[in-house]
């Protein structure tokens, strides 16, 4: 990196907008998911404005309070915690000898946030990188297995990132139009068929059936496959180009908020 680039970077950071829209997204998201103490930072996020902002960040109320009190946002710990990687990082597995990591966990304890959390790196199809960090205390995490909590947070972070992308971008390069296979699997799921039966119907295995249902869930930004079915029914895309199975089929009520039941 040239010296000019460094000064340019500092200048851009100093002039960076406080994207309060991100904090509103986050507040709405926290209310819907019953999560708390979330920090989100994204680099190179595509926006409608000319020139991408280098950095976009949003934090939960506890972190925000600390930033206001200290008059600065220290991104070092967040970056060290996993931006650039692809696998979720459990804070418990971080090297506690590292002074920056000690600082991150120390700040968390200072805020009464707890030092038990997960940082999930996110990649976007427009080349953006993001990191979604969340404390896993509460939010029903104690009754769920670590695997289930991680999966739930992976999905939650991706949905939040998709919300931010949609909110800040002039265009959405992702297509939310379901593929034929995804539609077929969701239709069969709506008819309460088992994974084996769905696989048989589409000429594939039950594993492939689950795969297409998962891609459909992700495309619709639904938290579970059941919620994806409800969303597809609610938006009318489910039976597009196909007849509903019987005239008395009752559309499933749309969930008022995000429902995190296991599928």
């Amino acid at each position: 990196m040239y010296c000019e680039d460094v000064f340019d970077l500092i200048d851009r950071l100093a002039r960076a907008d406080r994207r309060s829209i991100l904090n509103s997204f986050l507040d709405e998201f926290l209310r819907a998911t019953d999560l708390a103490d979330v920090a989100y930072v994204a680099f190179n996020l595509l926006t409608g404005v000319v020139g991408r902002p280098l950095l976009s960040a949003a934090c939960g109320p506890s972190w925000r309070k600390l930033h206001v009190q200290s008059g600065r946002v220290d991104l070092g710990p967040l970056l060290r915690a996993g931006l650039g990687g692809i696998a979720p990082v459990r804070w418990g597995a971080l090297e506690r000898d590292d002074p920056i990591i000690r600082k991150l966990l120390g700040e968390a304890l200072e805020l009464d946030v707890d030092s038990n959390g997960v940082s999930i790196p996110l990649r976007g199809c427009d080349g953006e990188y993001a990191l979604f960090s969340v404390c896993v205390r509460g939010s029903g995490a104690s009754e769920m297995s670590r695997h289930a909590v991680t999966r739930r947070l992976m999905i939650a972070s991706a949905i939040f990132h998709a919300m931010v992308r949609r909110g800040s971008s002039a265009r959405d390069s992702r297509s939310d139009q379901l593929m034929d296979r995804e539609l077929a699997c969701l239709r069969l799921k709506a008819l309460r068929k088992t994974d084996d039966e769905i696989g048989l119907a589409i000429g594939a295995s039950s594993s492939a059936a689950r795969f297409w249902m998962e891609t459909a869930r992700a495309r619709l930004d639904a938290p579970t496959v059941d919620a994806a079915v409800q969303k597809a029914v609610g938006t009318g895309s489910m039976w597009r180009g196909a007849e509903p199975p019987c005239p008395s089929f009752e559309p499933i009520r749309l969930a008022a908020s995000i429902d995190w039941r296991e599928r």
């Binding site: 996110l122 990649r123 976007g124 199809c125 080349g127 999966r151 992976m154 999905i155 972070s157 991706a158 990132h161 992702r174 297509s175 593929m179 034929d180 998962e214 891609t215 869930r217 992700a218 495309r219």
Partner: peptide, 24 residues
């Protein structure tokens, strides 16, 4: 969810705009 071979290298030749995106 990011740039991948299947989604981006085969964009022109993939059948029915095959694009697989999921955090899982």
């Amino acid at each position: 969810t990011g740039v991948t071979m299947l989604n981006d290298a085969f964009a022109a030749s993939a059948p029915q705009s095959l694009r697989i995106e999921s955090p899982l």
